[in-house]
């Protein structure tokens, strides 16, 4: 199959999605939505991997994207476990509740 998508457009989409995820991670106060923003960033990187894999006609990019997906699953499990442990000891899961090291 001839790749009909230009590489630069894919890389631009990847950069835009990564920037959106970065803004979400830095700006949101809900910890679950910060974790979801990390997922958005990982997905943006996967778009890059798939674009290079298609452009260079090389399978290895897709395999690296598969590893990224596996690590994202592990990160979701551990991160949400931490959020669950946190929500037992704090009133909410906003980062504004986590100020014990601040002062």
């Amino acid at each position: 199959m001839v790749p009909s998508v230009p590489l630069g457009a894919c890389l631009g989409l990847s950069a835009i999605l990564f920037a959106i995820g970065l803004v979400g991670f830095l700006g949101r106060r809900n910890i679950i939505l910060m974790l979801v923003s990390i997922e958005i960033m990982l997905n943006a990187v996967n778009v890059s991997f798939a674009a290079f894999s298609s452009h260079l006609q090389d399978t290895r990019g897709q395999i690296l994207a598969l590893f990224v997906i596996a690590v994202a699953a592990a990160e979701a499990a551990v991160g949400l476990g931490l959020v669950l442990a946190l929500s037992r000891n704090r009133p909410g899961i906003s980062v504004a509740d986590l100020t014990e090291l601040k002062y």
């Binding site: 996967n46 778009v47 798939a50 897709q62 994207a65 997906i69 979701a76």
Partner: peptide, 27 residues
């Protein structure tokens, strides 16, 4: 869908099954 356009069918399937199916339901 973008993965499908890029010729990465297996990656598209894994994306739907793992990301949209498992991770998002977990969240």
């Amino acid at each position: 869908g973008i993965f499908l356009l890029l010729g990465a069918e297996f990656l598209a399937a894994v994306q739907v099954i793992v990301y949209a199916g498992a991770i998002l339901v977990f969240y």
